[in-house]
Design a protein around this nucleic acid. Structure first.
Lengths: 349, 349
DNA sequence: ATCTCTTTCTAAAACGTTTAAGCGCGATTG
DNA sequence: CAATCGCGCTTAAACGTTTTAGAAAGAGAT
């Protein structure tokens, strides 16, 4: 019925040529010379391999060699442009070293993430790159299971875990100061849950320190947490509340591009204009912020470098054992990109 | 030195319990009952497995079973929001059937794509989903090698190859008509190379037929091909040329979101405004088109369904053999989303 | 005639699974 | 009391590699 066409294996080539599998394997791995295989025999092997359209079976090879040349990558959501870029960077960097990448989206869900880690390990990923939503103790457990891994975008404070992240604190400080310098002082901050993520706490810390630095009052109730899975409704609720007394904010700092999108949408619904009714800044710049109405001031992260660095560190760990090194904890510089979403006048009056 | 901690295998559990690997395997695969394994023994196996933190080695399993539960997915560029969404959809659909996805970006480069296909096959992907840039004969070759695969976004005309694509023709026809109805008649089309892709040729065909349908002149020289790897410069060149006599276009139809972005940028550079100086419409809607200045009229594609359907068809092929069926060639409905980038007045005068 | 050294190649084990075939034994049947 | 059956389990092969250890054969040395 359904004719199962067997793929050609080393054994097939060996049999066809009347030599051993060993020989064929050596030749096709370019170890023919170092094993003193006759040049002519080598040619015959190559020819036959081509003739039979031989393709090595990586599963068998990995099984035997105990390594798969695969990296597992876990991000919150690969359809978010930030992670999509990160994935691409990781893919490119990995493929330079002939590694492949197994992507997965965790949706910021710790359970799902744990399962994904498990699966990736079952699939014998040699190492993991994770934009983790886990807490310290989970990550410690990962260490015990001695899986080589590197965190991206977020990190675990006071831990030896290697990571590559943007300078979320510095970026947020600068971004908030940008608002303050323009004269905007009542600034709310929309963070995203789960809120223990350092990418988020650090942004909040930067925001707070900027206020303090400029002797402005810090009101904890101006920091609002937007749940990852209900962004639009939360933004609507918080925004309408904050824009009227007693808060009457003048500026809004949103912690990621998804919240920014929702904010634009809600403001439009409410017939409110940026920056007339509120100034907006966003952590994480995306292309289209240049073309929105108005263009949005944002902090740009070096996403591509982030991916590259993470791969670099991971592969280094894979090669040279896994002693933690200080220089494997990396903060990348960010950059404020001023655009027109902040007005340019003092509005305290 | 670097202590290699062996992972626990079936054999370890078997030895610890004084039973055979077979038994352990059966129990852990939930085939204990159907193989009449004593309930108590089953419990002991599970307990020991947990105790030793057993994780099955999927490489070994795949090797033995001849299938990896992995789907290979090749797109042009995973950092393009369209493909990122597609990837996410494929990931979700696949994981529902406990398949994993191995993504790769081909950069619209046929050679790279061929290599990726090869690699994915070496890695024993059970099937492939490809947004292909290959030509018919390459795809035929793939068939011969009897790899199950499904094309997405693009298809091969007059071929039995299964595919899932948006109705590029219908969408483009409608989008062009949208312009025409507003009174815009001199419309240029920016396609993207490589231009043999049906996703592109179909869009051109829709554009042309819309003109003919409304008895408007069709000028082939108004169709400009923008190379994938040099979008910005080409757009600048073509745009400046087309906006002045003798062409003096009033409308511009761009074939994907990347070209739209570049167009927005260039127009800004040139101090030109949409729709005052030119009307703009885009095939493929992205979130941010709602918030650009002005919001951009676009054709939305059901990307998520596209991914789902592709997975569905592929998995069906994997299960039920590979006879080509008519209903495995799918065109998905698109939808014009009118926004303010087209003006709303007759401008022929 | 034996020993040793190259050169070229091979046998067999190992990686961790799944699966086809079948074994030992007590209970049931005729 | 022999034959049969079912239960609970095992043996061994197989998947396609890589790798370790060593073999066959001819050449040169003694």
């Amino acid at each position: 019925m359904k004719k199962k066409i067997k793929k050609t294996s080393l054994a097939d080539i060996a049999k066809a040529l009347g030599v051993s599998k060993t020989l064929v394997s050596m030749v096709l791995n370019d170890k023919g010379n170092e094993n003193g295989i006759n040049a002519d025999t080598q040619k015959r092997v190559w020819a036959k391999a081509r003739e039979l359209d031989y393709k090595p079976n990586m599963m068998a090879r990995s099984l035997r060699m105990g390594r798969s040349n695969t990296i597992g990558l876990i991000v919150a959501d690969i359809s978010n442009i930030f992670y999509a870029r990160l994935c691409r960077a990781v893919e490119d960097a990995a493929s330079k070293h002939s590694y492949h990448v197994l992507f997965s989206s965790s949706d910021e869900n710790a359970d799902k993430e744990r399962k994904l880690i498990q699966t990736l390990r079952e699939r014998q990923a040699d190492g993991l790159i994770i934009s983790t939503t886990l807490e310290e103790k989970d990550v410690d457990k990962l260490h015990e299971q001695n899986v080589p891994f590197v965190l991206v975008d977020r990190f675990i404070p006071n831990s030896k875990t290697p990571f590559v992240t943007a300078d979320n604190y510095g970026g947020s400080l600068a971004l908030t100061e940008h608002l303050i310098k323009i004269g905007i002082e009542k600034i709310a901050l929309f963070t995203i849950s789960p809120s223990h993520l350092t990418s988020i706490t650090e942004r909040a810390r930067g925001y707070k320190d900027a206020l303090l630095k400029h002797n402005l009052p810090f009101h904890p109730e101006l920091i609002r947490e937007i749940p990852y899975d209900d962004i639009k409704n939360s933004v609507r609720r918080e925004l309408t509340r904050l824009l009227r007394p007693p808060h009457s904010i003048h500026g809004l700092f949103v912690s990621n591009n998804n919240i920014a999108k929702a904010t634009l949408e809600i403001l439009e619904d409410l017939r409110l204009r940026i920056p007339r009714d509120v100034s907006l800044v966003c952590f994480d710049d995306i292309d289209m912020f240049r073309h929105t109405d108005p263009p949005i001031t944002a902090v740009a992260q070096p996403v591509e470098r982030m991916g590259q660095k993470a791969v670099e560190i991971l592969l280094d760990k894979l090669k040279n054992g896994k002693k933690a090194r200080k220089k494997d904890q990396i903060f990348l510089k960010t950059k404020v990109i001023p655009r027109r979403s902040c007005g340019s006048f003092l509005r305290k009056s």
